[in-house]
Design a protein around this nucleic acid. Sequence first.
DNA 1: GCTCAAATGTGAGGTAATATAACATATAAT
DNA 2: ATTATATGTTATATTACCTCACATTTGAGC
Lengths: 108, 108
Amino acid sequence: MEKEASYKDKKVITIGIVRELTGLSERQIRYYEERKLIFPERSLGGSRKYSFSDIELLMEIANKIEDGVQTFEIRQEIVRKQKKQDEKAIQKRMLQGQLNAQFGVRKR
Amino acid sequence: MEKEASYKDKKVITIGIVRELTGLSERQIRYYEERKLIFPERSLGGSRKYSFSDIELLMEIANKIEDGVQTFEIRQEIVRKQKKQDEKAIQKRMLQGQLNAQFGVRKR
DNA sequence: GCTCAAATGTGAGGTAATATAACATATAAT
DNA sequence: ATTATATGTTATATTACCTCACATTTGAGC
């Protein structure tokens, strides 16, 4: 039933690799975190860990920055997008619930 | 035309993360490399970089080791499997070549 | 059973990678 | 004009990784 969290969302990539893959400086990557655009996990020792999704997002961010968009606005866009996705997920779950009820699926 | 190398095969994961994800010790992970079961890439500084595929393979290896299979035999299995896949790839390319010839696809 | 290779742990010493913090600066927003 | 934004740079500390060597245990082959 659950859509498994695929590789794309696993936070396993260190900041140096992210730097290579995105072309951003580590300073920039950390700064975008400070501005709450991305949310890496941390290792026990404190090292940041990113996912491929994070990298994709960072590249979008980089584009917008180049277009003169400020981190402030980018954050708002991200929040809006997230909200939409959350709503979709909820609706999907509700629909699934109705179907389950309709066809008498048992919980166990 | 080219099937893009997906996230799964990108070598971006350091050995510490691999240790966490597989439960193997770093010693073991390096040893399996020495026995030519896995082939991480290296950073400029010399750090090993693994892919999710590598991690999957390592978990298979771990299982076989637990079953008492020796690295020697595991390597043979891996080689055999690789060979099969290579053959498949070649056949596919040949078939594609025939189709291209048949329907007169131009190279550019 | 004996011997040797396989597999893994552990420790030393060294380098690479990352962390935070502070200061500097150029550009852009108010 | 002043302040905030975005980024570079440098210093210092800590974490993470590297190789190499030695020790140990267990299983393979004779």
